[in-house]
Amino acid sequence: MTRLFFDARYLRTDFHDGISRYTAELAAAVAAQAPARGVEVTFLVFDERQRALLPDGAATLLIGAPTTITEPLRARELNRHRPDVVFSPMQTIGTMGRRYRQILTLHDTIYYRHRTPPKDLPWFVRVAWRLFHLSYVPQRLTLNAADVVATVSETSARQFADVRLTRRPVVVVPNAPQRLAELLPEGGSVEPGARHLVYMGSFMPYKNVETLVRAMADLPGRTLHLLSRISPERRAELEALVPAGADVVFHGGVSDAEYAALLADEAVLVSASLDEGYGLPLAEALALGVPAVVTDMPIFREVAGGGALYAPGTDAAAFARAVRSLDDPDELSRVVAAGTAHIARFDWARSAGILLDTVADLAR
């Protein structure tokens, strides 16, 4: 029996962010497959409340938080429990002095291009974050301390290779969408159309929401829904760009069920982002049977395939034309069918299988 420690300390107990959702979904899929694969899984947590977000009956081990100053020495603590392999959905767990095999995860390289750290991190972590991303050298040292590096997309794997980010083997354990269809009311279904434009994501500058707002000048009779929480200052900046007569709704945050309901109501998922690590809302829309109009860039092509229409990120008129083209029922049906077929390859059970194959190879 192989002993796998799965680092679940990135589970958020208030609401999922991208890392938290990836952790939760992959943990559930790994737990389901592990017994048949001869793997005993223990989930690492630092908060008792995280146990409720793991599969029923899951074995857990309470250790320190990943943002504490002792994190670089975490391997010494784990050595006492004799795991065979430790998997972390991030790359920050300490590896110094480890006596087990280690899989570290780097989701993407976006923070080398946009170095602003998440605001909810402690100040000393935010300072270290900025310093860490000034050069590839610290990341190379970190990743080379593992046995295998995992990432979530083929696009990210190519980016790692382009900058020679690690000497270790890189395995793609793909991200996958949550099942929004399960959150619709009983008997509810997707009403096809392109009357509503739905944007789910942050309002950081590189997300380029300005293009979406400007595109509404050429989309009369439609509504742009901006779903995420937004600061008053950023909202004021975008409101100043709203074309006369355009309908732009700032929701200020929605639940997953509200998100699903908005997508199901004659909607198209839109994003004019100029850079992305993955694009989970795009995958979620396609899995629900909703088309998308997004920036033409490699990661969106990988995630959406033919399930999206593509436009230059700064061309508001091109975005508007793409949305209007979905008024043609045949074009709409074609895009939805292509997206449904494409996104089916992104599945948590498949991702868990890839991870457990890697664990088995390391254990041997």
Rank of each mutant, 00 (worst) to 15 (best):
R3K: 15
F6M: 03
R12N: 15
F15S: 14
G18V: 04
R21Y: 04
L26F: 12
A34N: 05
A34W: 02
T42A: 01
T42L: 00
D47E: 13
E48T: 05
E48W: 01
Q50F: 02
P55R: 07
A58W: 00
T67V: 14
P72V: 06
N79M: 07
H81S: 00
R82S: 03
M90R: 09
G97R: 11
R99D: 11
Q102T: 07
I103N: 00
I110Q: 04
H114C: 04
P118S: 08
D120T: 14
P122W: 09
W123H: 13
V125K: 11
V127W: 14
L131E: 05
H133K: 04
S135D: 09
T142W: 08
V149P: 01
T151L: 02
S153T: 07
E154M: 10
R158P: 04
V170F: 12
V171A: 15
A176V: 10
E186M: 09
P192I: 07
H196S: 13
G201Q: 09
P205F: 15
Y206T: 04
L219M: 06
P220D: 07
T223K: 09
L224T: 07
R229M: 13
A236W: 07
V242D: 05
D247F: 01
F250P: 00
G252Q: 12
E258S: 10
E258A: 12
A267G: 03
A272W: 03
A272M: 06
L274K: 07
P281T: 08
A283H: 04
A285W: 00
L288M: 15
G289I: 05
R301C: 02
V303D: 02
G306K: 11
G307W: 08
A311N: 09
T314S: 15
D315N: 13
F319T: 08
A320G: 05
R324Q: 15
E331P: 01
A337N: 04
T340Q: 14
F346K: 09
A352V: 11
G353I: 09
